[in-house]
Design a binder for these strands. Structure first.
Length: 269
DNA sequence: ATATCCACCTGGCGGC
DNA sequence: TGCCGCCAGGTGGATA
């Protein structure tokens, strides 16, 4: 499902509807997501929304005494609807606001999560995350040092949240193609120059995907229901066996860490 | 610590 | 049309 761009697009979409509003209460039709939605979230009543922020692929709806953590998993998405709109299949959680609108979480596969982080504490899931790819803290030097320690394939390392957060399967494939680096390369064989290029490409692709509303494959949509438009920019993801857009060699598709991996064995070394 | 594999869950698709 | 196996944007946890 959503990678960092799709989560950021969701954040940008819901934030104007939430910030400054008062959250009246929460309804859970299905409490069992990846984890059980905790009592603290269900007990929220009459709390102003201070901000909607993001860390990695986690959305944080900030209240005075803590934050609601929302993760979209593979198939989750958020929409804002009028409170008289009846919930559909897989519409699991509603947050009801004082202006008659509802923030509604739909998650077919229920790999997503809704959790609670008390003010002043950091949820364990957020405590060991690596740097944000679009922030300055994600430096080429840090990335290179992490790669030096690892002999796993570079694609696996790029998708490791301890190294850098937010890079999922689509954008890992795309970034490695644009950087001209084979996904199978042991991470510790990359030069500093290659890590520098890869870092820059990751940042460009994620930023571009955000401006285009993310990538819609099947169930992702923006909060207004429109699809993301980055799909048309994809060079290799989902194109195994088809010609490389640069050299026309048929793209190779393999599995790395149980994830579909597509690359051009001619352009990527 | 690192690397690998499995698990969670639903639905869509291709093949027979 | 039906059934079956495989695939899907994530990631924590068990294992060696």
């Amino acid at each position: 499902m959503p990678e960092l761009p799709e989560v950021e697009v969701s954040r940008l979409g819901i934030s104007p509807h939430l910030v400054g509003r008062t959250l009246l209460g929460v309804t859970a039709r299905q409490r069992q997501l990846r984890w059980l939605v905790p009592d603290e979230v269900l007990a929220i009543a009459n709390q102003p929304i201070l901000a909607v922020t993001r860390r990695a692929k986690y959305l944080l709806i900030e209240l005075q005494n803590g934050s609601i953590i929302v993760h979209l998993g593979m198939s989750g998405h958020l929409k804002v609807v009028a409170s008289d709109v009846s919930p559909g299949k897989h519409d699991h959680i509603d947050w009801c606001f004082d202006n008659g609108t509802v923030l509604r979480l739909n998650d077919t596969r229920r790999f997503g999560a809704v959790l609670w982080q008390a003010k002043g504490s950091i949820h364990p899931l957020l405590s060991a995350l690596g740097p944000e790819p679009l922030q300055a803290e994600f430096t080429a030097e840090h990335f290179f040092q992490q790669c030096q320690k690892r002999q796993a394939p570079i694609k696996t390392v790029l998708m490791d949240n301890h190294v850098v957060v937010g890079v999922g399967n689509i954008y890992a494939n795309e970034a490695l193609f644009k950087a001209g680096i084979a996904p199978t390369r042991a991470a510790n064989t990359l030069t500093l120059a290659q890590c520098t290029v890869l870092r820059e490409v990751v940042r460009q692709i994620l930023a571009q995907a955000i401006t285009q509303g993310g990538t819609t494959l099947k169930d992702f949509s923006q909060v207004d229901g429109k699809p993301g438009y980055f799909k048309q920019e994809l060079q290799v993801y989902g194109r195994g066996g088809k010609p490389c857009p640069v050299c026309s060699t048929n793209l190779t598709e393999i599995r790395l860490g149980q994830r579909s991996t597509v690359y051009c064995h001619h352009c990527q070394q």
